[in-house]
Design a protein around this nucleic acid. Structure first.
Lengths: 149, 149
DNA sequence: CTAGGTGCAAACATTTTGCATGGTT
DNA sequence: AACCATGCAAAATGTTTGCACCTAG
């Protein structure tokens, strides 16, 4: 099924096509909430019947990050959060009540950030914006979370 | 000397005025590079001749954060970075070459972020922007780092 | 005097690494 | 067959906590 896609991505990254890597890619692709900690991925693997060690999950996620397949975030404390790098380099808004993460992208802001970096004498290579707030109407959370997808 | 100021801040926060707390406040106030990890603060204390435990540094920094005196950042991985909360809620730009952190603040962006949050149905309570780049002219680094102070 | 603060060491949580075994190309 | 990947357990970080002692108010 999806293995074809995954295989291509992995080969392009110069990584052998192994079961743990395929499974992890698929999990990241198919997860409803696609912002996952290594532990989240690990638990999903287990409940899918995949026998993969947590160390391998970390190793694979780190390799994926190096290959540009995955992005690593450090939203608040504790664990790192990973998500598939779709190339659109979006930003995030975290609900302080539910912990859920939504995405957005705004050209005006990106343009302004580049100007600011230039004014400060920097060559800008990346940026991260994280907004913290609360969803006004929790019942519409689902919808709102999908708003930028 | 500065103890008066520190005392006031501490009392306002409902914290007893102790040597470790005063010293840590002073370090954060006076450090050239005022974005410091707990370890940085700890080492500075030691080299200043203050006998304070690392655990105390963490406890004090956490209390300061709760009291609104200090802000905690998670720029990339590893350790948390602390800085005095001056109330201006500025954002940061990190040099990927030198690791140095500079600050900036832009009303246009803040306004736009509030709009975005509202559009997404969120009540915005905070935001963090981190730019990653390289200083074009390293020799002027000092100056540029001070640009927003 | 009493509540709260501190140092130290142990506990924790997360992530990384060494090494022998196993799978891909 | 050669090399890379994996699992496990141990180690390495970074941060928190329990406890006996100490100190500011």
């Amino acid at each position: 099924m999806k293995k074809t896609t995954a295989n291509i991505d992995l080969r392009k990254a110069g990584l052998k096509v192994t079961l743990p890597r395929i499974s992890i890619l698929e999990i990241l692709e198919e997860a409803e909430q696609h912002h996952m900690s290594a532990e989240d991925v690990y638990k999903t693997l287990l409940s899918n019947g995949n026998e993969v060690g947590l160390a391998t999950v970390y190793r694979v996620l780190t390799q994926f990050e190096a290959a540009g397949l995955v992005t690593r975030h450090h939203f608040d404390g504790g664990q790192a959060i990973f998500e598939l790098d779709t190339g659109d380099n979006h930003d995030h808004i975290v609900c302080l009540k539910t912990g859920k993460v939504a995405e957005f992208k705004d050209e005006a802001i990106e343009t302004r950030l580049m100007e600011i970096a230039a004014e400060l004498g920097y060559t800008l290579s990346d940026h991260k914006i994280v907004l913290y707030g609360e969803v006004k109407d929790p019942d519409e959370k689902q919808t709102r979370l999908k708003i930028t997808n």
